[in-house]
Each structure stands twice: as C-alpha cells, then as structure tokens.
Design a protein around this nucleic acid. Structure first.
Lengths: 154, 154
DNA sequence: GTTGAAAGACTTTAATT
DNA sequence: AATTAAAGTCTTTCAAC
C-alpha cells in the first residue's frame, strides 16, 4: 500500500537528479543526464525507478497567485464546534481559495492556506466557516522559506 | 519588479494548459497541445507567454517525504523573543527540515512546516528555536487539501 | 545497472493565413 | 494568434557488457 514502511536510500546521483528537477521539472532527459553524469537512457531509467519507488510524488506547477489577481494570502487555524468536524472539513475542501489544508494535533484541528483577491473576499469565506468553527487568521507578509526539498541524505 | 500590479486574464485554453501542467509538469508539448485543442507550436507559444507574463512561477517536483524516511510533519508557530527576530529567521532558513515558512501578522511571527524522521529529531530542532522564541507545534495527522491551484477564473 | 547506436517521436523554425 | 511542413533535437529501444 503506497510507500513501503522503510526509508529508501538515495545515492548522490539520485540527489542531483531530484535537485535539478525541483529547480525545473521540465528539463530534458539529456540535461538531466548531464547533471547526473550519466547517459540519457540511464537517466531515464533512474527517473522511472524514482517514480516507481514512490520518491517522486508528482511533477507539478507553481503559479504566482498575485499574477492572476490573488494579492493576499492567509493562514487560517480552524477549530470546529462540537459535532461540526466533518461539515467544516467538507466546507474547506469545497472552497477553492483554500489551496492547502492540514489536519493537526493540538487545539486547532485544521490549518489551511488560502489565497484571495481582497479582504472582502476573505471576510466572506471566513464568515461561512465561523458559523461552524472558531477561526484565527494570520495574513502572510513574506515567505522567508519558499517550498523546498527536505534533506536528501542523513 | 516581477509581476505587474494588475491581474492577468486567463482564457479557457490557458486554464486547461495550467491544469494539465499542475497534474503533470513533464507532459509533452504534443499532449499539452491536445489538451488545449491547439497545434504544438501554438501550445509552445502559449506556454512561453504564460512564463513570460509571470503566471507560471516554476515547474517543480513534489517528493513523498515518507518515502525517504520523513515519517512526521509538523506546523510550528514561532514568536521570537524581543530582539531575536532576525536571528530566529536565519535559524529557520538554515534548518533544512523547514521546507516552508511564512512571516505573518498576528501574535505569531512565523509559521513554518517541517519534516522529521523522529520525535527526537523534532525535539532537537525545537530546542534550538526555543532558546530565542516561543513556539507552538502541531503534528500533521492528515492533509484534507493537497496543494492545488487557486481558481483560475472569477 | 550502464552504455552506444539507431529508429522513432517530439520540438522548433519559418513561411503563410 | 494560429496553422502546416520540414529541419533539428531529444527520447526510447535494443544489443552488448
């Protein structure tokens, strides 16, 4: 079921390939092979195995939210009222401005990230949630660490 | 200075292309053209312009942290002690287990996400931060919303 | 698990609408 | 902005180590 219950070891070549793909997932196999110090067929085979072993979850796209009008981002902590957990979870999932949400231990139950075009839009979204949960909202002012890979070796 | 201060409009073709790339950033131009209902050269030109206009920030890689031994993820809220803001920010940036960190309004100053192999590792990382900040840690139990694109049309 | 060589597939250019 | 056709480049297969 999914990922085996033991850490996969990545050698130096795997690490270089993953770092190159994290910088640009659309780089050609030829470039990837150069980075890795391998021939193209070997690089293709390595890549196939990294996917097969479940190390690579996805090749994906980062868009710039502000380029398409989402000038504000917020992190919202959400503590559903008794009996409202599932309804709140569904509400979050069905609100497309939530671009990420985790279920966590502790006082808060959910911690979500959302993008909005205006404070008015944020207010509208939070009003709906506040009917069924306590919320605590922090506006994002800066991002000192942009999404990055975890350490690939111990 | 990066992105223009006005929202770029995305037509239906741009939207289909971005959705396809979010599902698989390594899809070929040929497939992308099929999704978009265009010829390959047109799809290539559209893609070039989406990058040029700053809508596409990056093509990137999602790895599965648990596949390489990071079985635990946490969200940590961090409130530096007076005078310690910059030191704390640097500490976070230099701790590679922090795979993401935002600077926010409100009581907390930073909200970070980190991956660890064990509770012992988490304890070691938090001990260092706790010398200079109050922290509040929530372990991630589930992820009801995996990173996804914001709405691409209004 | 890797390589080099060849066949096949994709991408890019350029002329055109 | 889009298309087709052709040239160029990359990817994949396969025999060999």
């Amino acid at each position: 079921m999914g990922v085996p219950n033991a850490a996969i070891e990545l050698d130096a070549i795997d690490q270089r390939m993953l770092e190159a793909l994290a910088r640009n997932a659309r780089i050609s196999l030829k470039e990837l092979a150069e980075v890795a110090g391998l021939s193209s067929p070997s690089a293709a085979e390595r890549l196939r195995r990294l996917e097969e072993r479940g190390v690579i979850a996805a090749f994906t796209l980062d868009i710039a939210p502000e380029a398409i009008g989402y000038f504000l981002q917020a992190i919202v902590r959400i503590r559903p009222l008794p009996g409202q957990l599932h309804v709140v979870q569904r509400l979050i999932q069905e609100t497309p401005e939530f671009i990420e949400c985790d279920k966590v231990t502790g006082e808060d139950c959910f911690i979500g990230r959302l993008v909005v075009r205006s404070m008015g839009d944020l207010d509208g979204i939070l009003d709906k949630i506040t009917e069924r949960a306590e919320t605590n909202t922090s506006m994002i002012k800066a991002t000192p660490v942009k999404r990055r890979l975890p350490p690939l070796s111990r």
